[in-house]
Computed example of a mutant assay.
Amino acid sequence: MWINLGRLLMLLIWGFLVFNLIHPFPRPLKYFLDIAMVFMVIMHGLQLTLLKATLTRDEPKLSRVFQARMFLFGVFEMLAWQKKQRAQKPAGPGK
């Protein structure tokens, strides 16, 4: 539930930043939101790049849809992915 709430929040933030590109806000706020948009694109791109770099050869490749979701939702999609990965892995002996 919390992950989905985070995803919704992230969609609202992206919407707010894109709205600033289409219909700019007054001057000081416009520059702040432009910088926030650049920062968000860089951080989410870096997160996706690092995830792709840490995957081993035995793990399945990430689909384009998953990559787009990872870029859009950031850490919230990462948390959902990790939760899914843990659920798929069988528990080893002694765990």
Rank of each mutant, 00 (worst) to 15 (best):
G45K: 12
T56L: 11
P26G: 07
T56R: 14
Q67S: 10
K52G: 08
F71H: 01
T54A: 15
K61V: 12
G45I: 08
G45Y: 13
T49H: 09
K52Y: 05
R27M: 07
P60C: 07
E59D: 01
R64F: 14
L48W: 14
L50N: 13
R64Y: 06
M43P: 00
L48H: 02
D34Q: 12
V41E: 06
M43I: 04
F32C: 06
V65M: 13
P26R: 04
L33D: 09
L51T: 06
L46H: 08
L51W: 02
F73V: 10
L72M: 12
D34M: 07
Q47M: 11
A36S: 14
L62E: 10
K52M: 11
P28M: 06
M40Y: 10
T54Q: 14
L72F: 14
L50A: 09
L72C: 07
F25G: 06
V41T: 12
L46A: 07
E59T: 13
V75M: 13
R69T: 05
P28A: 06
M78C: 10
S63H: 00
K52F: 04
Q47V: 00
D34C: 09
P60I: 06
A36I: 01
E59K: 10
L51F: 08
R57M: 00
V75R: 01
P60H: 11
I35C: 03
R27Q: 11
L33W: 09
L50I: 08
M40C: 08
A53P: 00
F73H: 14
L46N: 10
R27F: 11
R57Q: 15
L46S: 12
V38Y: 01
P60T: 02
P60W: 00
I35T: 05
K30W: 11
L62D: 09
I35V: 12
P28E: 09
V65R: 13
F73W: 15
L51A: 06
H44K: 13
R69C: 14
F66E: 11
E77I: 00
M40I: 05
M70R: 01
L62T: 11
F32R: 01
A53V: 05
L33K: 05
I42M: 10
F39T: 12
P60F: 01
R64V: 01
E77M: 03
R64K: 13
L55N: 04
P26W: 07
Y31V: 03
F39P: 04
Y31K: 00
A68K: 01
K52R: 13
L50P: 00
Q47R: 03
L55D: 11
I42V: 15
L55Q: 15
L33F: 15
L50G: 05
D58F: 12
R27A: 11
F32M: 07
M40W: 04
L46V: 05
M70L: 13
M40E: 10
L50T: 02
R64P: 04
F71M: 07
A36F: 08
F73R: 06
D34S: 10
D34G: 06
D58V: 15
F66D: 10
F25H: 08
G74W: 00
I35K: 00
Q67G: 07
G45D: 12
R69S: 14
M70P: 00
Q67R: 03
L55R: 15
P60L: 11
E59R: 04
V75D: 02
D58H: 14
I42T: 09
L55Y: 09
G45V: 03
P24H: 06
G74H: 03
K30S: 11
T49Q: 04
E77P: 00
D58I: 13
Q47T: 02
D34I: 03
K61T: 05
